[in-house]
Write a protein that binds this DNA or RNA. Structure first.
Lengths: 94, 94
DNA sequence: ATTCTATTTAGAAAATAATCGAAATAGAGT
DNA sequence: ACTCTATTTCGATTATTTTCTAAATAGAAT
């Protein structure tokens, strides 16, 4: 999970709204989709990117797929931003 | 400068490398460009986006334009990420 | 087994972003 | 005034991303 993917993931407004939605509780894909004026397929695409970036996880129940936020991944991003802010050493990322 | 612009700005690898370069000291546009295999016009385009996002500032000297990092803007981003990580209330952003 | 319902995948179209070459700007040095 | 040098802006091109429709998958319910 390169941080490049994480930053790319949070650079889109729709995906950020999804993350903010999941902040309070988990939702099934369809429930998430209903919060947007987008087709389910499109939301599914965004969920895939968020999943690939490690920002959310999925959990299947009946024929629903629930999504949850993964708090831990934000550490990396925080770390990178801090390094710029404070000027310390930090690894490059691709 | 909406945070949307900031996140968009740091989502590109070239722009992140520019930020990391400026972490240690300020550089003129041409010096920045020479660190990449990109034409000056292209780097200028990236600098413009970083400037619009409030991540860097420019300062003219002779016929050079020097760029500097703006540490303060990172606060917003940190704040947003923390809000997800910790689950507190936070404003929407567009 | 068939038919719902929920969701994803595949492929195409539309929208956005990155790159370049050429022309424009601006100030420095002659 | 002219000519360098540094950088940006403009317009066109290419590449990437987002969105959609239609078809595929999978499990639940009848």
């Amino acid at each position: 999970m390169a941080m490049s993917d994480t930053l790319k993931a949070i650079s889109d407004p729709v995906r950020r709204q999804i993350l903010e939605l999941l902040r309070s509780q988990s939702y099934a894909a369809g429930e998430i989709a209903s919060h947007f004026e987008l087709k389910p397929a499109t939301v599914s695409y965004h969920l895939k990117l968020l999943k690939q970036a490690g920002l959310i996880t999925e959990r299947k129940d009946k024929n629903f797929i629930y999504y949850d936020l993964t708090a831990s991944v934000f550490e990396e991003v925080l770390s990178w931003i801090y390094s710029l802010k404070l000027g310390g050493d930090h690894d490059e990322q691709k």
